[in-house]
């Protein structure tokens, strides 16, 4: 873990250290912006009467993927909240997969996950209060009985914590275990290089499988709590 590069910015006596994971995230942001610009242009040019091809097709499939995750929970409010969930979902999916090209995942930095989870929490509370009013929201906390209010408040506050820790723990564990395996391969050279035949499977499990599943869970839970507050339709 000593070889993680970072940038240090000095403001007088104050030092701001930007970790490698956050640098990777900034690069991923720029890449997503460029991709989205080209995809938007391809969709503008595409002929609606024909089946989409190339980039337009891929962006439609990506949209359908995001829709598949959020639609079951948000129900009739999907159209309203789709832009933010879709954007963050694509970003998180790509940042969970950056381990495949040898960089540290942005999601293995706890501040990244906590930012998203706290943002979701504030979004849920704001939209719940906006929909039903402050009194209805506070009354909802006292159900089913008044003495359960502290437990309900703890339950609300546990949402961002569990969202953060689940993603952080999974991705960090994957990073550390693959790092340990690479260290073992290096220290057992030259026979240790045979271990390189095993590393693709490690990456498939920890980066692809774990990363995609955790993205799915993060957004399923986030949209579930939001849909519980804003949606009127029954499941």
């Amino acid at each position: 873990m000593n070889e993680v590069s970072s940038i240090t910015i000095h403001f007088g006596s104050f030092e701001l250290v930007i970790q490698q994971s956050i640098l990777v995230w900034l690069v991923v942001c720029v890449l997503i912006c460029i991709l989205a610009w080209f995809a938007g242009r391809a969709i503008d040019k595409a002929d609606p009467s024909k089946a989409p091809t190339g980039l337009a097709y891929w962006s439609e499939e990506l949209y359908n993927l995001c829709l598949y995750v959020v639609k079951g929970n948000l129900r009739e409010t999907t159209g309203r909240y789709m832009p933010i969930f879709g954007t963050i979902m694509v970003g998180m999916l790509i940042s969970n997969l950056t381990g495949l090209v040898g960089f540290q995942n942005p999601t293995s930095n706890v501040s990244f996950n906590a930012t998203l989870a706290v943002m979701f929490f504030l979004m849920i509370q704001y939209n719940a209060i906006k929909k039903g009013g402050l009194m209805a929201r506070l009354k909802g906390l006292t159900e089913p009985m008044w003495f359960l209010t502290p437990l309900n408040i703890i339950g609300e506050l546990a949402v961002p914590l569990s969202l953060t820790m689940r993603l952080f723990g999974n991705i960090l564990a994957g990073t550390i275990i693959s790092l340990l395996i690479y260290t073992l391969i290096k220290s057992l050279a030259p026979w240790g290089y045979l271990g390189l035949t095993l590393t693709p499977f490690i990456h498939v499990y920890f980066d692809v499988f774990s990363g995609v599943i955790q993205t799915y869970i993060f957004f399923t839970l986030g949209t579930y709590f939001l849909g519980e507050q804003v949606s009127n339709e029954e499941i």
Binding site: S162, M165, R166, F168, G169, L172
Partner: peptide
């Protein structure tokens, strides 16, 4: 898996 992840952290 969540509880296991808490222990891991």
């Amino acid at each position: 898996e969540t509880t296991g992840i808490y222990a891991l952290i």
